[in-house]
Design a protein around this nucleic acid. Sequence first.
RNA 1: GGCGCGUUGGCGGAGCGGUUACGCGGAGGUCUGCAAAACCUUUUAGACGAGUUCGACUCUCGUACGUGCCUCCA
Length: 486
Amino acid sequence: MTLTLHNTLTKKTEEFTPQEGNAVSLYTCGPTVYNYLHVGNWAAYIYWDTLVRTLTANGYDVNRVMNITDVGHLVSDADEGEDKLEKGARREGKTAWEIAELYTEDFMAGMEKLGLILPSHIARATDFIPQQLDLVRILKEKGLTYQIEDGIYFDTSLFPSYADFAGLDLEAQKAGARVEFNPEKRNASDFALWKFTPKDEQRDMEWDTPADLLESAEAKKGFPGWHLECSAIAMSILGPTIDIHTGGIDHIPVHHTNEIAQSESASGKQFAHFWLHNNHIKSEGTKISKSLGNGYTLQDLKEEGFDPLDYRMFVLQSQYSNEGNFTFENLQAAKNRRHHWRNVAALRHQTHDTLSSDKQKSDDDNVVSLLAASGAICEALNANLNTPAALQVVDEAFSRLDGKGLAAIHQHGLDELLDSIDELLGLQLKVTTPDIDDEAKQRILERQRAREDKNWQQSDTIRDELLSQGIALRDTATGAIWEYAE
RNA sequence: GGCGCGUUGGCGGAGCGGUUACGCGGAGGUCUGCAAAACCUUUUAGACGAGUUCGACUCUCGUACGUGCCUCCA
């Protein structure tokens, strides 16, 4: 089984192999923690979580780094304007440090709710200031930087392949640009490695600029440019060349282009072998933007009665490389699908294998197909993370169970399939489908006896009573099966 | 102005040059004491126009529409 991924670098879907043996180094651009993440932000982390799960299922040992941008991300890629953190701080009457802490915690909590596997390293940009300054130093020593009034810049004209990654036409962009760029910059595409705090200001987050990086004796406070942190963090933890770098499609022309330029200039080596980019989902038919108010948060979804895992299911219903469309109607469809899956998962509490019948059932095509499904899910994911195809495999496997009585369901086979689904798709089917308590089971038996006596009134009373506890019953030829009402 | 992407049935969304996607929803039916579920049937596909081909939703070109980036953003 081979894993193929679409590589932005080569613009082809290629077979993935790591540089060394089974070890995969993976870097994911993390959030800027100045606000709550919205559904579009979360979708990206769900996609890349699926990548980690797929790599792991293929026997790779994944060493993954995700940064937390808690400083230096200006409101404009043109290195103008305000810092998001400082802006957020003013908005909420807090310090930038407090803002970063608040939203970092919320991000971590959201990862937990969505069942996202924690990266091996979560690196705050502010914890890597020395490494970032070291990188500036290396670039300066190579003569690739220059200093102007507001900071130390990278001269992109000295990195000849600068435009290649994103297929940029720099001249044409300059001609059509709607925003004036800093006239002190040598090239429009030059970007700040290190920004100076303006003379009359004091920032919550600022550091001394090492004297050897400055071109004059005057001491300056400063802070890192946004692009710097990813290169510094990635290279200091994972080495100069990483296997896979992921991020949003919007990062291709600026952020990732700049990362490549500064990293490869410094190291003289290829920065990443594979670049994966997730497309953006729309929300209610248009792009997500603050002014439209369609950037729903996990809290918003909760208030509408949706579990974070419903959203996870929604995201898995389309491929990471395609533009999706978030609507509550579509989320409802995902919720319904997940509800059905949970009820299939609940069957494992209701079927019991004995050794003999287990063996007997093992010959059944049913069991074979259950076990085959795990492999088929993995195969779907191996085709450039085709999650909709993976979901289809599960649906088909579950359909084969739906029609059967409990006696025909192989508990162990079902259990193994559920484990695979949880490992590969992170839907937490097992932990979200606890068994019902003994009292409820007792009531089901009582109802069974009432039905045998044709005491329909008693039977219906018990059914209603259980329903009020969230347990729905359906009668089959071989007895009652319980399900989650909600 | 420059660069790019998309257009599949009520909604979401895959694969595939010739054979059912799948899910969600709607309708009818079977089953059932009733119900629910399940199952069966059904509902509506490939923007438009050419071309290649024995044959195209699937390849090529054009048109229309939509949309993204270049400006904060996954």
